[in-house]
């Protein structure tokens, strides 16, 4: 393991553009690698020179104060930042050692491999069935109705939604409760068969009970998928993730085992955030 340790963490943070992340940002056999990555919105830099690996079948959570660039960083991983005109990404980002920003890569295919779940549940104003079938249809994943039905059922079953909606697949998805909608959005994402799932505060619009179901779902999905989740709740990070990355003002301050980050943070800023002095 490549460990980027350093003697005086605070001093390093103060020098713009030149700092080192404490903890273990890099791994041996990663699913995705991010190197020297910076993101700019027009002139304003939102992410500073981040190095991070995301492991196979791990759940990594990103925490940090509002506006520190967690969402921006997450959107780099499936090039959702491309949809923002003024956004510019620099650096080297790889999925299975393939440069995802190279000219050769097909963004559409990339996003099928790296799915995304958003903060606010955003089901399409279509039926429940059509929502789940959407990705499969555009990517031509199934050859006939029977296969499509199967895929829809399998995805809904995996998200624990099947029993709740199997009698009302043709009803509009917008009629589901918030928690059901969010699980539907996850089902919609996994129906495409992604390898990595990005989740941007997937529970922040949900009540505690719905949050618990979604967290349980994330836990189950981690057996088969690599998951990067942004969260505002430290308890949630602690419950669902193996590693935790702490961002501060666009810089990746610390990456460590989740248990370590919450019990024995290495960096002073992380500690201040964990103990509630920042944020």
């Amino acid at each position: 393991m490549n460990t980027a340790q350093k003697t005086n963490p605070e001093a390093a943070v103060e020098i713009p553009g030149k700092y080192q992340t404490v903890g273990h940002p890099l791994l041996d056999d990663p699913k995705m690698t991010v190197r020297s990555t910076s993101v700019f919105y027009a002139e304003k830099q939102a992410i500073f020179d981040v190095d991070l690996d995301i492991g196979k079948n791990e759940v990594i959570s990103m925490i940090g104060p509002s506006g520190c660039g967690k969402s921006t960083f997450l959107r780099c991983l499936n090039r959702m930042n491309d949809t923002i005109d003024i956004c510019r990404v620099e650096g080297d980002l790889r999925l299975d050692d393939e440069d995802i920003y190279s000219k050769k890569i097909d963004v559409v295919e990339l996003r099928a491999r790296v799915g995304m779940v958003f903060q606010k549940p955003n089901p399409f104003p279509k039926s429940i069935y059509e929502n789940v079938a959407y990705g499969a249809r555009i990517h031509g994943l199934t050859d006939n109705k029977v296969q499509l039905d199967e895929l829809v059922e399998k995805s809904l079953v995996r998200c624990g939604l099947w029993n709740e909606v199997k009698d009302r697949l043709e009803e509009p998805a917008t009629g589901l409760s918030g928690g059901q909608q969010q699980r539907l959005c996850i089902a919609r994402a996994i129906a495409v068969g992604p390898e990595v799932i990005l989740m941007d505060e997937p529970c922040s619009a949900l009540d505690p009970i719905a949050t618990a179901t979604v967290e349980e779902l994330i836990h189950e999905l981690s057996e088969n998928f690599t998951i990067a989740i942004v969260t505002h709740s430290m308890q949630q990070a602690a419950r669902v993730s193996q590693r935790t990355a702490y961002f501060h003002l666009g810089k990746l301050i610390e990456v460590n085992e989740t248990s370590q980050v919450f019990t024995n943070p290495e960096h002073k800023l992380t500690e201040e955030y964990i103990t509630g002095r920042i944020g």
């Binding site: 990339l110 099928a112 799915g115 399409f124 959407y134 555009i138």
Partner: peptide, 21 residues
């Protein structure tokens, strides 16, 4: 809402697919 566009792009739809569907 922009969130619907994002949802569709996030599933790997192209712009014209997103518009049409």
């Amino acid at each position: 809402p922009q969130s619907l566009r994002n949802g569709s792009f996030g599933l790997g739809a192209t712009q014209s697919e997103t518009i049409r569907k």
